[in-house]
């Protein structure tokens, strides 16, 4: 089990990139923090989610 934005999810073993696609996020618009560390965009596809990971995903919308 890992926690995403405070909710427990059974996603250990897949990559962050796979999770983002599955959950409908737009990867170029998100900032992902894993265990309090920001994951560089170039590492989303290769970072595997582990049991106990705490993940925060923030997706921006446009306008300014």
């Amino acid at each position: 089990m890992a926690t995403v934005n405070g909710r427990a999810e059974n996603i250990a073993g897949i990559t962050l990139g796979e999770y983002l696609a599955r959950a409908g996020y737009l990867p170029e618009r998100v900032v992902v923090e894993r265990n309090l560390e920001i994951v560089p965009r170039s590492m989303l596809g290769s970072t595997v989610i582990r049991d106990g990971d705490s993940i925060e995903i923030l997706q921006f919308v446009g306008g300014g």
Partner: peptide, 9 residues
């Protein structure tokens, strides 16, 4: 939005 995410990250 992508520029926002880039700068914040």
């Amino acid at each position: 939005a992508d520029q926002k995410a880039m700068l914040v990250g």
